[in-house]
Computed example of a mutant assay.
Amino acid sequence: MTKPFHFQKISSSLFKYALGAALAVSALASHAAAVQNGNLLVSDLSNGKLREMGQDGRTVQVFDTPDFADGFHSLRGVAMGEKGVVHMFNGTFTPRMTSLDSNNGSIKSNLGMNGWSTVNNISYGGIGVYGNSVFVSDMFTYSGGEASGIVMFNLKNGESSRFATNRSYTDLTVGRNGLLYALNGNVDVYDPNSLRLLKTINLSGNYDARGVAVDRSGNLFAVDMYGGLAQYDAQGALKKQINFGGFMTDIDVNDQGMLAIADRSSNISLLNSNLELVQRHSLSYRDSPYHLAFVQTPVPEAETWAMLGAGLSGLIALARRRRQQA
């Protein structure tokens, strides 16, 4: 039986200063250019830098981001948005959702919400994009961060809301199948339109999972701090389990079935759809590259899919009529 969740909505008016002030802040990437499809975005937790990296391991460009952790930085989860915009979980106890325009290297906005925070663990702090909504994980912490659940930012008007407030999530992602997956030991699956809890997936093949990714078919991949990498089908049944090794901190999947994994030893590993290692790149330990994402088109909202489907149907019908007339 699906558990009920609590929903709380709070206007982001307290943070409207960020929208205006952030426009003057530059990411300071020299000769900034739009990030390229197929590359990787790697967030360096300890120095607040966002790195675009080719699958061959070369660094394409590096962006600086604002510091919201009193000089310690804490750049965590990263997710690709529309038209070259990158969204980031930026901070720990008073984080902001930082949006960077890679076309020119400027910071578009830094949005926050009262009580939003995460426990200070290198693998915590997840983010996902669905149409005009950005979701971030929210954990119970003290001294003002007692709220928990999932925070949702509306990119159109800057407003924020919180739901699933009876849970505390360490990570989340929007799957390539258009559903929202939130990690708290096991994985809760939400409809990002209605925000309804659909099901919970028991991660029986992982011990203390730290990151999840989901492909177009609904296959879920999870990594844990003890080197476990597991694949589950869309219903949550364990399909494959391997000991990949190392303390893994994050994972992502692209539409070609390639997996990217970050670990505590500052390695970025690429695997094929059979969970076989293809490449491994060692980065500087000083940079703390613990979170990553593929550069790829974000998942559109359901209404966008419907419009695309209607448009395609109209083109097919028009072509059929023309053939009949001919």
Rank of each mutant, 00 (worst) to 15 (best):
G131C: 07
G131R: 00
G131S: 04
N132P: 11
N132L: 08
F135W: 04
V136M: 10
V136S: 09
S137V: 01
F140L: 12
G144A: 02
I150C: 04
I150K: 08
V151I: 03
M152W: 04
M152Q: 14
F153T: 03
F153N: 08
N154H: 11
N154A: 06
N154P: 06
L155Q: 13
L155R: 10
L155T: 12
G158L: 10
G158N: 13
E159G: 10
S160Y: 00
F163S: 10
A164C: 10
N166T: 15
N166I: 11
S168P: 02
D171N: 15
D171K: 02
L172S: 07
N177H: 13
G178Q: 07
L179W: 06
L179V: 00
Y181W: 10
L183P: 00
G185V: 02
V187F: 05
D188T: 03
D188C: 04
V189Y: 11
Y190A: 00
Y190P: 05
Y190S: 06
D191W: 00
P192Q: 02
N193I: 12
S194H: 04
L195K: 15
R196Y: 01
L197S: 05
L197N: 12
L198K: 02
K199Y: 01
I201F: 08
I201G: 01
I201L: 15
N202G: 13
N202T: 15
L203D: 14
G205P: 13
G205C: 11
N206F: 12
Y207P: 04
Y207T: 14
D208P: 03
A209G: 15
G211N: 04
G211K: 01
A213S: 13
V214D: 09
D215W: 03
D215N: 11
R216W: 01
R216V: 13
G218N: 08
G218T: 08
G218L: 03
G218Y: 00
L220C: 07
F221E: 12
A222S: 15
V223F: 02
D224P: 00
M225Q: 14
G228C: 09
A230M: 03
Y232Q: 02
D233C: 05
D233A: 01
A234H: 12
Q235V: 11
Q235I: 04
Q235P: 00
K239I: 09
K239D: 01
K240I: 06
K240Y: 09
N243I: 07
G245I: 12
F247A: 05
T249H: 08
T249Y: 09
T249D: 11
T249F: 05
D252N: 02
N254T: 05
Q256M: 11
G257E: 13
G257M: 07
